[in-house]
């Protein structure tokens, strides 16, 4: 069963008398444990599509199913619960909570969203800290770590809930080339380890090179390409 399935998906924004069709009749299928990239010029609709899949923005019309759940008409609380349990987010600006330590940032979704008991939280947080190589930085605050480390923490936070899907919007845009490479490698490693699907919206050729499926969006329309060399980056 596909993890993400969209049929005739449309998103139209209305600004005054003007209608802007951001996504036009998109059909899409993404299988579990995929490494997928949405590429396209600015304003092409990449982020809009990512937001719709992330249950942050409802489509204007069409069908959208994520992890077997129709997410087109969820109310705010159900949508929040769904995101908290199924989807992880990695943002361009890392978006860590500045008053929480690295450990607490990763723990946050387990504590405030999934409400797991303390021993289980501890186990999962330490497992992810180890996995992203940040175990020795657990007590530090976001202001005390580098950009690459912040993004590792963000990835750990996205995965700690056992999310089936991680949506990453320009995750390497604020990182230097080497750091970006390491973060992408780590994400791919996470995909292999946790069988999580990663969907990126990106301009970064490094990510595009690593993606197994590339969706090119232009004027709200989607074109699918299988990247035979996905994962075989230099």
């Amino acid at each position: 069963m596909p993890l993400v399935e969209a049929k005739q998906l449309e998103k139209t924004y209305v600004s005054g008398d003007i209608e802007i069709k951001a996504i036009r009749g998109v059909d899409l299928t993404i299988e579990p444990a995929s490494f997928v990239s949405f590429i396209g010029p600015s304003g092409s609709g990449k982020s809009t599509l990512l937001n719709m899949i992330g249950c942050l923005d409802p489509p204007t019309s069409g069908q959208l199913t994520v992890a077997g759940q129709d997410i087109t008409k969820l109310d705010r609380n159900t949508a929040a619960d769904f995101r908290g349990n199924t989807i992880g987010f990695v943002f361009q600006d890392f978006n860590l909570i500045p008053v929480l330590t690295v450990y607490e940032n990763i723990e946050y979704p387990l504590l405030m969203v999934q409400k797991l008991p303390a021993p289980e939280r501890k186990k999962r947080v330490f497992a992810l800290l180890e996995a992203v190589g940040m175990a020795d930085q657990a007590a530090k605050y976001p202001s005390q770590i580098s950009g690459g480390q912040k993004q590792r923490v963000a990835v750990a936070r996205a995965l700690v809930t056992n999310a089936k899907l991680v949506l990453a919007d320009e995750p390497t845009a604020n990182l230097d080339r080497d750091t970006a490479n390491r973060v992408i490698d780590m994400m791919k490693q996470m995909r292999d380890e946790f069988q999580t699907t990663f969907i990126f919206s990106t301009h970064d050729p490094k990510i595009v090179k690593n993606a197994e499926i590339i969706y090119t969006i232009e004027d709200g329309k989607l074109q699918r390409t299988i990247n035979e060399n996905g994962g075989n980056h230099a």
Partner: peptide, 15 residues
């Protein structure tokens, strides 16, 4: 921005 982040990662509006 922080409110957006915690909302996105699943914090309910009531919380």
């Amino acid at each position: 921005n922080e409110i957006g982040t915690i909302a996105a990662i699943g914090t309910r509006p009531g919380k």
